[in-house]
Nucleic acid binder design. Sequence first.
DNA 1: TTGTAAGCGTTATCAC
DNA 2: GTGATAACGCTTACAA
Lengths: 341, 341
Amino acid sequence: MKRPATSTDVARRAGVSQSTVSLVLRGKDEGRVTAETAARVRAAARDLDYEPNAVALNLKRGRADVVALVVPTITQPYFASVLVEAEKEARGAGCDVILFDSGGDDDWTHRLARMVRSTQLDGAIVWAPTDDEVAALTSIRDRLVLVEAGSDQFTRIDLQIEHGASLVAEHLAGLGHRRVGYFAVHPARETYLRRRRALADSLGEHDGVIVETCSIESALDLDAAEQAAGAMLDAIGADDSVTAVVCDDDLLAAALVTVCAERDVAVPGRVSVVGYGDLTISRLVRPQLTTVSLPPSVGRLAMSSLLDAVRGRPRTRRTPGLVSVPVTLVERASSAAPQQL
Amino acid sequence: MKRPATSTDVARRAGVSQSTVSLVLRGKDEGRVTAETAARVRAAARDLDYEPNAVALNLKRGRADVVALVVPTITQPYFASVLVEAEKEARGAGCDVILFDSGGDDDWTHRLARMVRSTQLDGAIVWAPTDDEVAALTSIRDRLVLVEAGSDQFTRIDLQIEHGASLVAEHLAGLGHRRVGYFAVHPARETYLRRRRALADSLGEHDGVIVETCSIESALDLDAAEQAAGAMLDAIGADDSVTAVVCDDDLLAAALVTVCAERDVAVPGRVSVVGYGDLTISRLVRPQLTTVSLPPSVGRLAMSSLLDAVRGRPRTRRTPGLVSVPVTLVERASSAAPQQL
DNA sequence: TTGTAAGCGTTATCAC
DNA sequence: GTGATAACGCTTACAA
């Protein structure tokens, strides 16, 4: 491949100055360049297969038109859909998205901060960072949108997890459950802790009626989940009063339901199962999972917030704010009233 | 946020020239700058929180250190793992990855070509493009790695689908199956057509013994798949001789197995099911799926090929080549000898 | 109507 | 040892 043609090459070929080329090709030749000259320039550009150098352009404008999306693990299907939504929104604004997997690399905060400060990146959406990570990011806080984390120094998007938890508590208490187990993700990111605390709080509002009485932790992969699900069933088997299990993620819930089937534990007869995520697998397993649906539209929202923040004129720029996104409970076959003992 | 400090700011503060700053900070001051001066420069840089402007740097070097990964749909779990692998490899070479979803936008070829030619992107990995798409990309062919597609003008990575197909054929024929159904993805990208043709060829080698006799198509989403799976079972119900179904994707296979369970069709007793992908769901459904495993390491391979191609010195640059990656058959519980009729 | 020239932030080649 | 100065490719006053 030959060196790509520059605007100077085009100018030379059209027999005009380089600035005229720029004028014409950027459409700013309104009554400044003869139609004939303009045509000559355009022809030359076409002949040389000219494409403006985007890097030079960025340098000139001091803007990269690239933002980052940082997620804990892109292999979680939920994040794939978030990425798609965010991408779509960004694309519409002429902006590209690069992906960081914060799970893969513990030094990502510094890399991100450096890239933002070196104008390689206009900004970033950061999903569920830990408190430490948030602290490491303060130097670039006005080019950041945080999802499910952060203080009011940051622009944030928040899922209404508390509301989701109250829906779950209401649902289970209403069905007549009195003791629930919790199937938690380990290691427990803040997001998961929040889910769990929120559920505990919501259960607390039905005071004395319904409480979390046992819990098991598992890594977010299938093998670990199936093993932990076995442990969960052992625990439940030893305590008849536990008639429902809330899971931090649909993958855990799916594993639990599957292991139940293998052990002839009736779902939802013996135990009701509730997940988080409304992922594809929640409809693939039998019984299909009752689950808290986390809308992927958060990706779109976060991106539009970010674009506002980094593109907005200074006077337009809003103070850091908090947008709260509702979650919903999707009731499917994995939860029902506990069978009489 | 204030304007970030430039090397000129640092120079001013250290009381030296801007070029000295560059020398010191890039570590090229070997016996050229006094230790004392160097220290002063470094101190100034630290004070000002200086970060070299990456865009200026790229302009200077004519390289972006960003490549794209183009996949048909990132929401397919397989591609998420591919992305992770590719990312890891790129990161190691100081390169970032941006993602294109070719499914989302039919003009992506032009966008990609423009970005490459404008030096915004050093190159790209393109997954399973159609022939038309390949044609649209020839202008940037030496900065491309194609996966599962393309002619020998391109650097390519290929899955050994034919070999996979022969494993499947061998497996099913060996178990005693004589008539198989095909559960295909619609719309049929070249990748899928290849899978299917390859299977037909492999079955043909067991001439007259085993053949594909019926097929159903479905979009790659769960609702469509479950509906199509129903149709497949109707077809099979009407023809006892069909005792196995090969599916273009584990999602289809999972849906089929699930619908079988609902209709009390025994798997693998009445019908064996084979999928493609070895995705998480293949181990979540019961029976677990026999499936052709497509190694995510292809992502790593493709990225290292690409980096070679775009980073390599001209004299080092290899001619376009073809790397072929083996696939394997993972035998699980969804396939077995057909039950005697 | 067109061209000249400054500047975006770097790196690198020379003089001093 | 250090500092002008010329690129890199572009946009945009401003001059002609």
